[in-house]
Each structure stands twice: as structure tokens, then as C-alpha cells.
């Protein structure tokens, strides 16, 4: 696809359940118990089990890949500013990724992102550059 500066990319919403976190833990090797045990999560002062920040970032990479037909990612980064709290029920929560193409130059497209769970932004200054 052609990416042009100013283009708005259709928001992508992905479900996040406890099962997603268990599966991601196994695939990534990140077995931090704050991502599967309410007991441990609350003991360290979190509201409950939270998604791996890297799971949220993986969903960002997924959205970018879907928008760009798998364009080569050159840079990807974000701050994890608010936790994605995942309740222990069948619905869990969702993460929605929206993007705007900021610039296309030197063979790279830079996309500014907004990543929310519910009404809350969960990533700070999420940014990605892909080769075009």
C-alpha cells in the first residue's frame, strides 16, 4: 500500500484476556507473576494482573504490519505509561491502536500512534518507522 503523510490509519481493536497473557508469557519467556497472579500483582502495589507491556507493543507491531502489508520495521518504541489491567473473566479487556502517517521521506514512513485500553492511553510517545 502507499503511505502518504497525513493519512489516518483505521483503528485496530484487539481483545486481551488472561488466556492471552498466559500464551504470551509462554511464547516470550516473560513469566513475571504480575502478568498471571493477582496475589503477586497486588502485593507489589498494582491494581491486579496487568498485560505485559511487550504484549501491548506486539499488538502495535501487529497493527502496523496489517496497515502496511508487512513493511519492514526499522524503529519501534514506546513508554509504558499506564498498565493494561486484565480482569479474570471471559471478556478481559481490549487494546485499540490508531495511527497517523507523520512523514514519508528517505525511504522511511514514520507513524505516530495512539494506543488505548478503554478510555485510557496506555503507551506514551509510541512511534514506529517502516521502510517504504
Amino acid at each position: 500500500m502507499t503511505l502518504e503523510a497525513g493519512a489516518e490509519l483505521a483503528p485496530k481493536t484487539y481483545p486481551v484476556t488472561r488466556a492471552s497473557l498466559v500464551r504470551y508469557a509462554g511464547a516470550s519467556g516473560d513469566f513475571n507473576p504480575i502478568h498471571w497472579s493477582d496475589r503477586v500483582a497486588t502485593a507489589v502495589g498494582l491494581p491486579g494482573v496487568i498485560a505485559h507491556g511487550m504484549f501491548t507493543m506486539a499488538l502495535v507491531a501487529r497493527a502496523v504490519s496489517e496497515w502496511t502489508d508487512g513493511a519492514e520495521v526499522v524503529d519501534l518504541g514506546a513508554k509504558f505509561t499506564n498498565p493494561v489491567v486484565v480482569p479474570d473473566d471471559d471478556e478481559g479487556t481490549t487494546v485499540t491502536v490508531s495511527g497517523t502517517v507523520k512523514s514519508v521521506e528517505g525511504g522511511l514512513a514514520t507513524i505516530a500512534l495512539t494506543v488505548v485500553s478503554g478510555d485510557q492511553k496506555v503507551l506514551g510517545m509510541p512511534k514506529v518507522s517502516v521502510r517504504v
Partner: peptide, 17 residues
């Protein structure tokens, strides 16, 4: 302890895929 770590930020910068 890993349980006392929360991820603050992550960046990837690629030289090649």
C-alpha cells in the same frame, strides 16, 4: 526479584530484519 520490575519503556532499532 522479577516481580518487583515493571517495564517503563522499550525501543527497537533495526540494522536489518
Amino acid at each position: 526479584e522479577l516481580s518487583r520490575i515493571v517495564h517503563g519503556e522499550q525501543k527497537f532499532s533495526y540494522t536489518r530484519p
